[in-house]
């Protein structure tokens, strides 16, 4: 079998990490790896979950046909679903979303995420991102969220983000009484990360072939590195078969 792409690896790692009690998994725009993860979990470990993908809400635990991972989230084919995701009503149900996924231009040592861009310090923009979509809201409320960073360098992993789109800092979240559970896990092309008891980013595992020095050089702050850092367990043949043959049939993650 061909080597997994980074997005395929992300999909498998996310699908493995969902908690047993997760019932509602919601996926935002430009996160096809999260769409695949939600479907994978729904057809295997999480038959009772409801997954919100694009315009549709699915429950695939009875063997229903998984929706393909289309290049665009809001594809009309996602309306072949058991319920629809109404953008004007989805925020009326803030007790319900358990899991959400976010990406960003920058992440910092405390887990804060920036999708706004980099201001120029004079009221304008040095680099403008797309806007924060629903990051602030979903990260405030959902039981837990995953950060998926498409690149890992000293430009994207910084000591302090220029602007906070999603507040990850556990201390600040508690002070502001945010109801959600905060960050569960962070994935980058180099490794898997979480946050220690003090709320600082910690290395959990290194992807196959990545060295500790590489990660430290690509990170703009001092990572918490435990004594033993395992290699990220790669996808099994079974997981890859499920992903490629039933879930990502168009090869969007390839």
């Amino acid at each position: 079998m061909e080597k997994p792409s980074i997005n395929e690896l992300f999909a498998v790692l996310l699908a493995r990490d969902f908690h047993a009690e997760d019932r509602t998994i919601m996926v935002g725009a430009n996160m096809p790896m999260a769409r695949a993860a939600a479907v994978m979990a729904n057809v295997t470990t999480h038959p009772d979950a409801r997954i919100s993908i694009g315009l549709g809400v699915q429950g695939l635990g009875d063997g229903g046909d998984p929706p393909a991972v289309h290049p665009f989230l809001f594809d009309p084919r996602t309306m072949a679903a058991e319920a629809l995701m109404f953008q004007g009503r989805v925020f009326d149900d803030m007790h319900s979303p358990d899991v959400f996924f976010v990406g960003g231009l920058q992440v910092d040592q405390r887990g804060n995420l920036n999708l706004f861009g980099i201001p120029d310090g004079e009221g304008g923009w040095k680099m403008r991102g797309p806007g924060s979509i629903a990051l602030a809201t979903m990260s405030a409320y959902c039981a837990g969220y995953y950060i998926v960073m498409p690149s890992h360098s000293t430009r994207t992993f910084v000591e302090r983000v220029a602007l906070i789109s999603a507040l990850g800092d556990a201390t600040e979240r508690a002070r502001l009484k945010l109801p959600g559970g905060g960050i569960r896990m962070l994935l980058s092309p180099l490794g898997v990360f979480d946050f220690n008891d003090a709320g600082d980013m910690r290395l959990r595992s290194l992807h196959q072939g990545v060295t500790l020095e590489e990660v430290q050089e690509a990170t703009g702050f001092e990572l918490d590195v435990p004594d033993q850092v395992p290699v990220t367990p790669g996808p099994t043949d079974e997981e890859m078969q499920l992903l490629r043959e039933r879930v990502d049939v168009y090869g969007t993650l390839a």
């Binding site: 925020f91 924060s132 979509i133 809201t137 979903m138 906070i164 502001l176 109801p179």
Partner: peptide
């Protein structure tokens, strides 16, 4: 935020000056 758009448009439709929202606090 996407939810701010919902709240702000709804406030306009309801003839209110604002609606409260939590998402965005601390950002």
């Amino acid at each position: 935020d996407e939810a701010h758009c919902v709240a702000g448009l709804r406030a306009a439709g309801q003839g209110l000056p604002f609606l409260p929202w939590r998402g965005g606090v601390g950002t």
